[in-house]
Amino acid sequence: MSDASNSWEKLKDFTDARIALGRTGGSLKTQELLAFRKDHALAKDAVWTPLDFTLLENELENMNLDFLRLGSEASDRETYIRRPDLGRKLSQESIAIIKNSNPSPADISILIADGLSANAISTHAIFFLEEFLPLVDRFSLAPICLINQGRVAISDQIGELFSSKISIILIGERPGLSSPYSMGIYLTYNPKAGNTDEKRNCISNIRVGGLPYAYAAGKLAFLTSEALRLKLSGIDLKDTFDSQLLKNDFGKK
């Protein structure tokens, strides 16, 4: 059996890609084959695991935050996977819940949606809010919306129903093989049904080994105040957060 592998193992230092795996004959060795299958198992389960809303609601209560539980028109996970268009629309019932809550206009609507990785949300959403909310406490906040089977664009409809100036959605990203629990955040100024992606600013890859909470929270707070100041978002809102960081050392611990 040839283990003609790892005379080049040192190349692994330069990349996260799965290189220098070795081989038996031309094939993967058992350990590598099963390591891949394990990562795929985690990613696949992340897509199909439902979000534990009760847990989230308890945490939000502890933080003294108002919230509403809502759902999209995708009534179950399979419909959600097959029909992204339905995940972008609120169910009739949810629209009624918002309207019956007599919302008063707010600066910011914050939404939390399962997206394609509920585990990403249950792992990161609360920790992230704990970092983010103190940075934007000068702005008014609509009740936090928890959304079952939601896609990014549902933030337009919800922000519009609350007459919020900005809609921010925390959402589970499509699981990668090496990043099954990664959270993304999208910010839209003047949320309106029918907005397209160039109207949004995105911060992705919030996960263990990815962007830390404090950095992502600082970046989102920067984008939030810039969007409110300039009254726009998306490709017209330049993300100069990193160069600001260099200037004033904000975010250094």
């Binding site: 990349t15 996260d16 890609a17 799965r18 290189i19 795996l21 590598e32 891949f36 990562d39 499509r174 990668g176 093989l177 090496s178 990043s179």
Partner: peptide, 9 residues
């Protein structure tokens, strides 16, 4: 590499 594209996910 390893069938896993770490950029395109």
């Amino acid at each position: 590499p390893g069938a896993d594209d770490v950029m395109l996910n």
